[in-house]
């Protein structure tokens, strides 16, 4: 517990940390992967499909970073292109049609900053996920398993419940990016990491997530077992909630701290 926020960032980025595919394989069974956004391409940085959570069919979507250097290159280091977000949305819409809950695993340093990504509307793709997820008529649970990199992670996290393992981080900008913009010095990333309040504890305190998942058995069968049990329980609860969408709206509506001059 003596880790600094920047130590957490490094842990969250560790290539040996479980990735999206590890979670899918170990929590669900019978995963069928479905590809493509039906518009342009299939983005290998986002994996999606249908699987069984116990006896319940669910739609599962995960950002995949890969472990080995070769896998990482193939997965574009977990930096999705617009077609990745559009594939995710297509699968969510399909889940809505067939009444399947959606479970997302987000892990990215951010949406890809590339020429093609801009040409194909990275901003528009993320924006569309934000609007559509806000009214998707099935339960959505998102787990930010490693790096929660800004809009690129949020595009899979407009959910009824958002959880984070204790060493995952969630931030509006990378600490290095923040330090280089504000202090013209990427070496001040540790100060930026502390200032940005990006740890799971911070996120929970700010009302951005509901649950912190302990990591003492990270990657062990018991770890996935526990998450499976939590997911199963939560999905049942959310499925029976008649005010699901109103609560999802309120969940985000109340986030923020403002000053007001209004005299009451």
């Amino acid at each position: 517990m003596n880790q600094t926020p920047y130590d957490r960032v490094k842990l969250a980025r560790d290539s040996q940390r479980p990735t999206g595919m590890d979670y899918i394989r170990r929590i669900f069974h019978g995963f069928l992967e479905f590809h493509g956004d039906r518009r342009y391409a299939d983005d290998p940085a986002i994996v999606g499909g249908i699987a069984w959570l116990g006896n319940t069919p669910v739609t599962v979507i995960a950002i995949e970073k890969g472990h080995t250097p070769k896998e990482r290159v193939e997965r574009n280091f977990g930096a999705p292109n617009p077609e990745g977000y559009r594939k995710a949305l297509r699968l969510m819409k399909q889940a809505e049609k067939f009444g399947r809950p959606v479970i997302c695993f987000a892990d990215t340093s951010g949406a890809y900053c590339g020429i093609g990504a801009e040409e194909r509307g990275q901003g528009q793709a993320i924006a569309e996920n934000l609007t559509e997820m806000s009214t998707l008529c099935v339960p959505i649970v998102s787990i930010l398993i490693g790096e929660g990199g800004s809009g690129g992670a949020l595009a899979l996290a407009v959910a009824d419940r958002v959880w984070m393992p204790e060493n995952a981080v969630y931030s509006v900008i990378s600490p290095e990016g923040c330090a280089s913009i504000l202090w013209k010095d990427a070496a001040k990333a540790d100060l930026a990491a502390a200032s940005l309040k990006l740890t799971a504890e911070d996120a929970k305190r700010l009302g951005v997530i509901e649950k912190i998942l302990p990591e003492e058995d990270l990657g062990e069968p018991s770890y996935y077992e526990r998450i499976r049990a939590l997911l199963s329980e939560e999905i049942v609860r959310l499925t029976h909630d008649p005010d699901l969408l109103q609560k999802r709206y309120d969940r985000f509506r109340r986030i923020g701290r403002i000053a007001s001059d209004r005299v009451v």
């Binding site: 800004s150 809009g151 949020l154 931030s171 990006l198 996120a203 700010l206 951005v208 986030i255 701290r257």
Partner: peptide, 8 residues
């Protein structure tokens, strides 16, 4: 920080 991100 995160509070800004959530405004999106």
């Amino acid at each position: 920080g995160l509070l800004s991100l959530m405004q999106m």
